Amino acid sequence: MKPFTFKQFEVQQDRCAMKIGTDAVLLGAWTSLESRPFSILDIGAGTGVIALMLAQRSNAELIDAIEIDDEAYEQCVDNFENSPWGDRLFCYHASLEEFTEEIEDEYDVIISNPPFYSEDYKTDNNQRDLARFADALPFEHLIDSASILLSEAGVFNVIIPFKEEDYFIQLAAKKHLYPNKILHVKGNPSSEIKRSLIAFSFSELGPEINELIIETERHQYTEDYINLTKDFYLKM
């Protein structure tokens, strides 16, 4: 499998169950870095693509990632080392629970593209199931850890199915995390909202809600989507 080539870096993904998709690129491009974070954490890094995008977009000195799957972890490390920002990127091979218990650092920005297949079936590919199914990283567990690892003025950013938005916000509120920004994503103008990108903080500020449509028709991308991703995709 060929590497996925962005404008400023390449990502090998042949050893990762979850390949690079629109969700990861959306989150990496949308996450606000206006606060000029010193430290960033990517929970469930996979290929490492989101951490790499934030390394390109910021001067953050510490960009950590966590990946529990053996193969994905090794590939993430390779992708970090082969990037222009290898000195700022580090991947931990650990579960989120282990990491949260052992690490005393707090992070100014936390990002996660969590597994969220909550359907009742699984495939014969355990690695892919681990990457795709919500029981590998329950929302409650993700939110609890984020609330511990996030700095007082930090922002926790996720992308989840739109149908899970209300539930996720309710869970977050129990840990005093509140939505400040929400982006609803639709594939095309006539389709239903598919994804929610949400930025949480410990401050009850809003939220500011916007909508993004990806295509007007097949492979005809909207100006909003092009503007969001043009720093990364070669063909934008």
Rank of each mutant, 00 (worst) to 15 (best):
F4E: 01
T5V: 07
Q13Y: 00
A17W: 08
G21H: 12
A24L: 08
G28Y: 00
T31P: 04
E34W: 01
R36L: 07
T47N: 01
T47Y: 09
G48V: 07
L52H: 00
L54R: 05
A55L: 04
Q56D: 01
R57T: 09
S58M: 03
D64I: 08
I66S: 01
A72R: 03
A72N: 02
Y73R: 03
C76H: 03
D78R: 01
R88V: 00
S95E: 07
E97R: 15
E104A: 12
I111E: 02
T123R: 10
N125S: 09
N125P: 00
N125D: 11
N126G: 12
A131E: 06
A136F: 07
F139P: 11
H141T: 14
L142F: 04
I143C: 05
S145V: 11
L150W: 08
N157G: 09
I159G: 00
P161S: 11
F162E: 08
F162S: 11
F162K: 12
I169S: 11
I169F: 01
L171P: 02
L171E: 11
P179H: 03
P179L: 11
P179V: 05
L183I: 10
L183P: 08
K194H: 07
R195M: 08
F200M: 06
E204L: 08
L205H: 08
P207N: 09
E211G: 14
L212M: 00
L212G: 10
E215D: 01
R218T: 13
R218V: 14
T222F: 15
T222I: 06
T222C: 07
E223S: 11
E223C: 10
I226V: 12
N227H: 10
L228A: 00
T229M: 13
Y233H: 12
